[in-house]
Design a protein around this nucleic acid. Sequence first.
DNA 1: TTAATTTTTTGATTTTGGTCAAAGGATTTT
DNA 2: AAAATCCTTTGACCAAAATCAAAAAATTAA
Lengths: 187, 187
Amino acid sequence: MSLLKDYLGKFINFTPTLERVFFELCTIQEIPKKTHLFKSGDVCHHVHFIEKGFARVYYLLDGRDVTSWFAQEGQVMSAKDSLFTGKPSDYNIQLLEDSKVISINYRKLESKFDEYPALERAARLITIESYLQLDDRIKNILFYTPEERYLRLLENYPNITTRISLGYIASYLGITQETLSRVRARV
Amino acid sequence: MSLLKDYLGKFINFTPTLERVFFELCTIQEIPKKTHLFKSGDVCHHVHFIEKGFARVYYLLDGRDVTSWFAQEGQVMSAKDSLFTGKPSDYNIQLLEDSKVISINYRKLESKFDEYPALERAARLITIESYLQLDDRIKNILFYTPEERYLRLLENYPNITTRISLGYIASYLGITQETLSRVRARV
DNA sequence: TTAATTTTTTGATTTTGGTCAAAGGATTTT
DNA sequence: AAAATCCTTTGACCAAAATCAAAAAATTAA
C-alpha cells in the first residue's frame, strides 16, 4: 500500500479516521499480464492504482487498436469517460505485465464526500491532475511531430521501450508501428 | 447573469447565502472584439463565463497560431493549465465578437471551499466537465478524419461558420485553412 | 462608392506518413 | 532444442494533407 499512500499524500492529509475510511474502499490484487481490468461497453465504477506493473487504456475503432493511455507503478487509471458519467465506456483497460493493483470503489468513495470533505478535495485535485495530463497530451498531438512526441514520451517513461511493445507505443503517439520503427532508426 | 445562474444550477443548489458569496466573486464587463482577456506567459487567476459573444483560446508555436478551444454564450473558459498549477500559461484568450463576460476570481473562490463545501463540489463537477470535453477532443483528433471532425464540430457549434473565420476553425481541427476550404467544398 | 484590407478559394507541387508485403529477430511454447 | 508465434524492421508504392503562390470574394475603412 505504500506507493498509494505516497501518491495520496500529495492531495490529502490523512488522519487515522480518514485513512481507515479510505482504505476500507480498497482491494488489492495480484493479476497476471494480459488480463483485462475493464472492457468497453461496461460502466466503470473503480479507479485502479498500479502498485507494481504496467497497464494501458485502449479502444477499438473499426478494427484498429489504439492505446490512449499508459500507467505504471505509482499511477492511477480508470475508464474516466464512464466513471464520470455513469455511461458505458469507449475504453478497455489491460495489464501489460504481471501487476499488483489496488482498486478503489469510486461510488462508495463519492458517498463519503458529504461526511469527509477532505476526500472530496482529494478527488477534485486528482481530477485536476487528470485534466492537466490530457491537456499535455493534446499539446503533444497538435504541436509536435511524431519524432518529437516520441522523444517527449521517453522523458516521461524512460524505460517504456523495454517494457512495452512498439505497436502500443506507436498507436499512443498516433502513428503506425512502421513509422515509429523508422523514427527510432533515425534517433 | 441569468445564463451563468442556469449554467451553475447544473452543479450546485444555490441557497441565498451561497448565491451571495459566489456572486461577490464575479465581475461583469462588456468587452469589444479582438480584445485579449489573457496573454500567455501570465499566471491565470480567473475563469471567464461568456454571457454573450464568442471567444477562443489559442497558442503560438514558432509563428503558428493554433486555436485550442472555442467558447460561446453559456460556456466557461480559462487558461486552465495556469489556473490549476499557478505557473505561467501557454495559452492566450481572445474575444472574437463584442462580448459580455463574467469573470470569476478563482483564487478567492478556492478560499471559500473550507467554509462552503457546496462550492468545492461545484468546482469538482465543473473540472470533471472540462475533463470530459478534453477527452472528447482527443477522441475526435485520434479517431476521425478532418472531414468527420469538421462535421462533428458543426454539430456542437451549428452557426460557427458564420461567426468565426475559417483559419481559426482549421487550426482547431488540426488542419490548414486550405484543406478546410477543400473539405467544405466537398460537403 | 471606392479603396484597402482581410478572408476564402483554387491550382501546382512537395512532403509526410500510411499501406501492403515480406524478411529478420526475439520470445514463448511444446 | 525445435517449432511456433509474436514483434520489429525494411522496402516499394500510394494517398492525404502541407506548402507555396496567386486569384477571387467578402468585409471594413476612407
